[in-house]
C-alpha cells in the first residue's frame, strides 16, 4: 500500500464554466465524506486567481498547443494567430475548445505560476477542471495520447478528456470504419446513439460520478505519490477504455480495501509507513 506522506488540510476544486456536469459541489462533498478533508468549489481557475496579463498567458497557452502528435512540444515562439485565438478563449471561458490538444504538463506548469505563493503549499490540493483537451507525450510509442487527468501541482481534469480520452468500445471503431465515417459526418451521431450508455458524452449526468473518482485520484496522488490502482473495481483504476471507466466509477464507485485504508488514514489526519 502506498504510504500517506502528506495530509492536506484543504482541497480546492476549480470549475469549468463550459460544462454543466460535473457538479463540483457533489464532488467536494464526496471528498469530505471519503477522506475527511474539507473541499471548496471555486470559480474557473484563471478567473478566481484574477490573472491580469492575459496577453502573456495567451502566448504561453498557444505554445502549449500540440500541432504534431508525433513530436514532443517544440520550444518555439507560438504563431501569432494561435496567441490571438487563445486570447479570445480567455475572454470566453464558457466556450469549449474543440479539436485542439494541449500538452498537459506544459499547461500544468503555466497554471502553477498563477497560484499565489500562500496557496502554493502541500497543505492544499488544487484540482482544476478545464474544457481543454490535454495530452501527454509517451516516449514508448513516440506520440501524444489524450488524458482525462494530469496529476501534479495543480492536478488537471479535462472535462473534454473524460469524454474523449478513454477509448470507446472496440466495436464502435469497427462500425465507424465499416461505415467509412470521416470528419463532421451526421452519421457519427446516429452511430453514437446505437452505442448509447457504453461511453460518456458531453452533458452526460454520469460525469459527476466519474469526476468524483478522478478527483480522488488527484488527491491520492497528492497524499501518497500514487494516483492509480490496479484493481478494476477501484475508483482509482486507470481506465484505458470507457467501459472500464464506467465500471470503476459508476457500477462500483468505491475504493478497494487497500485504498479504503489510505482514506481512513487521511480521515484520521495521520501519515503512514508500511516499509
Amino acid at each position: 500500500m502506498a504510504d500517506v506522506q502528506v495530509v492536506p488540510t484543504g482541497v480546492y476544486l476549480y470549475g469549468d464554466p463550459s460544462a454543466a456536469p460535473p457538479d463540483l459541489r457533489t464532488v467536494a462533498a464526496h471528498i469530505k465524506r471519503v477522506c475527511g478533508i474539507p473541499a471548496r468549489v471555486r470559480k474557473e481557475f484563471l478567473v478566481h486567481h484574477k490573472v491580469r496579463d492575459l496577453d502573456a498567458l495567451a502566448r504561453e497557452l498557444a505554445a502549449a498547443r500540440v500541432s504534431d502528435l508525433a513530436r514532443p512540444l517544440p520550444e518555439t515562439e507560438p504563431p501569432l494567430p494561435l496567441a490571438l485565438f487563445e486570447r479570445r478563449q480567455l475572454g470566453s471561458p464558457e466556450r469549449r475548445v474543440s479539436g485542439v490538444l494541449y500538452d498537459g504538463v506544459r499547461v500544468q506548469q503555466i497554471l502553477r505560476t498563477v497560484l499565489p505563493p500562500k496557496e502554493r503549499s502541500l497543505a492544499f490540493v488544487h484540482i482544476v477542471f478545464t474544457s481543454r483537451l490535454l495530452g501527454m507525450f509517451d516516449d514508448a510509442d513516440r506520440r501524444y495520447h489524450a488524458r482525462a487527468i494530469v496529476v501534479g501541482y495543480p492536478s488537471l481534469i479535462s472535462t473534454s478528456g473524460l469524454v474523449e480520452a478513454p477509448a470507446k468500445p472496440r466495436e464502435f471503431y469497427v462500425a465507424k470504419r465499416a461505415l467509412r465515417i470521416e470528419t463532421a459526418d451526421a452519421r457519427y451521431e446516429s452511430l453514437k446513439e446505437s452505442f448509447a450508455g457504453r461511453f460518456l458524452d458531453f452533458e452526460d449526468p454520469r460525469l459527476t460520478r466519474v469526476a468524483k473518482g478522478y478527483a480522488l485520484q488527484a488527491l491520492f496522488y497528492h497524499a501518497t505519490g500514487a494516483p492509480f490502482c490496479e484493481d478494476r473495481d477501484c475508483v482509482l483504476f486507470n481506465a484505458h477504455w470507457q467501459e472500464e471507466l464506467l465500471h470503476a466509477q459508476v457500477e462500483s464507485g468505491l475504493l478497494c480495501a487497500r485504498h479504503r485504508k489510505v482514506a481512513e488514514a487521511l480521515r484520521g489526519g495521520r501519515r503512514t509507513r508500511t516499509r
Binding site: 500540440v66 500541432s67 504534431d68 504563431p79 494561435l82 479539436g99 470521416e182 470528419t183
Partner: peptide, 15 residues
C-alpha cells in the same frame, strides 16, 4: 505570421 498547415488533430470535431 505563420500558418501551421492543415493537419489531423482531433478530427471528429472539425466543423
Amino acid at each position: 505570421a505563420k500558418r501551421i498547415g492543415e493537419g489531423g488533430m482531433w478530427i471528429e470535431r472539425s466543423e
